[in-house]
């Protein structure tokens, strides 16, 4: 019981150590002990995580070797690994792996940037303007409730197999999440701060840029984490539907060749891209939210 209660206290997501203020020898020793315990816990946690992955992949591999899992349908970890190695050393049927990644990344990044820009601008504009939001809100609700991924087919008809159709799909997927957060963030701006800015002489535009935008940023940044994932989905799905390059096409070709290892290897590559992007966005968030008290900024997530 007490044991269970102590664990969250030492959680690895906790940003600050409780170091006693007065620096007696006793206190310092206690602080050191606390830090050591925390480090030990972190090492254990990571070891356990690795063990978990090894166990999962190992039993999969074992399942294949003992003929409980059919690698023809489900692939196997060693096969995925081999596939990745081949792609890296010999390239893919459509050119080098780096090129495929670059194509997909380009589509996702363009879609992400444009989608975020549109979402932020429209979210704030509607949040600041009663008439606009009353006028447009039913349309936005309808647009948000339809399964937008289907538009991918339409875009690939309209824009062809090139970059544009994927970027547009990514924009559509990214836009709504960012829009709703920017809108809500704008609505929640502290009235006091707005009044203060007006008294100090801010024009409407200055108040929007220097008060509304930074305070809505907390909301907007929260949506960016999900949004890059959506951009990536948009790019890959767009490529699945029709493309001449990219990770999506690679996966699709693997599917057509009945190669589950190829599909999974493609997934692994995309996963790595998403993780790197996530780390970049977290760094950006930390930088932009410097002004917040530390226990609120960053770190709080999983």
């Amino acid at each position: 019981m007490t044991q269970a209660k102590r664990i969250p206290d030492l959680g690895s997501t906790e940003p600050t150590l409780e170091v006693p203020a007065a620096g007696g020898d006793d206190d310092r020793a206690r602080a050191r002990e606390l830090r050591r315990r925390k480090l030990r816990r972190r090492i254990w946690l990571n070891l356990a995580r690795i063990a978990l992955v090894v166990a999962a992949l190992g039993s999969w591999e074992l399942g294949v070797n003992t003929k409980h899992i059919d690698p023809f349908f489900w692939g196997q970890p060693s096969g995925v690994w081999r596939q990745l190695k081949t792609w890296i050393t010999d390239g893919t049927a459509q050119g080098s792996l780096g090129e495929q990644i670059l194509v997909t990344l380009q589509e996702a990044v363009y879609g992400f940037l444009i989608g975020v820009f549109l979402g932020v601008v429209l979210g704030i504009a509607l949040g600041r303007n009663r008439f606009l939001s009353d006028l447009l809100s039913p349309f936005i609700k309808v647009a948000n409730s339809i399964p937008r991924i289907v538009l991918g087919s339409l875009f690939s008809i309209a824009f062809g197999f090139g970059l544009t159709s994927k970027v547009v799909l990514a924009i559509v997927l990214v836009f709504f999440g960012v829009f709703f957060n920017a809108f809500q963030g704008t609505r929640e701006v502290d009235r006091n701060l707005l009044s203060n800015a007006r008294i100090l002489g801010a024009s409407r535009w200055q108040a929007t840029r220097q008060v509304v935008l930074p305070s809505a940023f907390t909301w907007i940044l929260a949506s960016l984490h999900v949004s890059f994932g959506f951009a990536l989905i948009g790019a890959v799905v767009g490529e699945l539907l029709g493309a001449d390059k990219g990770m999506g096409l690679l996966i699709r070709n693997a599917q057509n060749n009945f190669s589950p290892n190829g599909v999974l290897a493609g997934m692994v590559v995309i996963g790595v891209i998403a993780l790197v992007a996530e780390a970049l966005i977290t760094a950006l968030e930390k930088r932009l939210l410097r002004w917040r008290p530390p226990q609120l900024a960053g770190d709080a997530g999983i």
Binding site: S195, N196, W291
Partner: peptide, 28 residues
């Protein structure tokens, strides 16, 4: 030509102290 100190804190939390104080002239 009016200045207002509000009942609740109304300094801008995302601006440094210097930028907070300089805000009025900057707006103008």
């Amino acid at each position: 030509g009016v200045g207002f100190m509000f009942q609740n804190d109304a300094v801008f939390p995302w601006k440094s102290v210097l930028d907070n104080v300089a805000a009025g002239p900057r707006f103008r």
